[in-house]
């Protein structure tokens, strides 16, 4: 078992080893038909130690975290936790794409301020991934006039942000 497999098992649970490749997870997945590798196959990649194939799968980023796979897995595995593990390893390896950039911004905003502002989240994401501009601007055009997004000057922070930061730093390393 290589280090990659061990790391995924550590993050997603040792029971991943008991996968029988029955396909319940992928057949329950709402975005499976759009994926290059089904969630079932991602688990197989993990168990075979096929790190490159797993980390380069677009599928990781098409997971909506809906937990349908996790509710149904007959082995009690949490396939979504496997995807989460792969996302973490992807980022830890220094790999970047538009999806991981979004995750990174989202996490940083919580870590620094305790809450997320959709305005600042979208604004920063748009700067880092200019291709998303059209989509975000048109969405903003729908929501801003309805008063659903406030154009903020300075993002709010909660008082307990140091505690939140510790949550990320001390629990995130474990």
């Amino acid at each position: 078992m290589n280090e990659f497999t061990k790391e995924v098992l550590r993050l997603a649970g040792d029971e991943v080893k008991t996968c029988i490749q029955c396909g319940t997870c992928s057949a329950s997945c709402p975005t499976a038909h759009l994926m290059d590798n089904s969630i079932r196959k991602l688990v197989k990649f993990v168990l075979e130690g096929m790190k490159d194939e797993a980390l380069n799968s677009r599928s990781i980023w098409l997971c909506t975290s809906c937990l349908a796979c996790t509710v149904r897995c007959p082995r009690g595995i949490r396939p979504m936790a496997v995807v989460s593990a792969l996302k973490q390893i992807y980022e830890a390896e220094g790999m970047r794409n538009r999806d991981s950039i979004h995750e990174e911004i989202f996490n940083r905003h919580i870590k620094e301020r305790g809450r997320v502002s959709e305005f600042f989240l979208s604004a920063e994401y748009m700067l880092r991934n200019p291709q998303s501009a059209a989509q975000i601007i048109s969405f903003g055009a729908e929501l801003i006039p309805r008063g659903k997004i406030d154009i903020e000057i300075r993002p709010d922070s909660i008082e307990g942000r140091d505690e939140v930061k510790r949550i990320f730093e001390e629990l995130g390393g474990a």
């Binding site: 029955c22 057949a27 499976a32 007959p74």
Partner: peptide, 27 residues
Amino acid sequence: VRGRVSEVQEVDGGLVLTYEDTLLGRF
């Protein structure tokens, strides 16, 4: 067909099974 059925739904009087054919990797 090798693949566990994920759900059965009644659609227009018939029963529709959703599954992945795991040997083909197709939904």
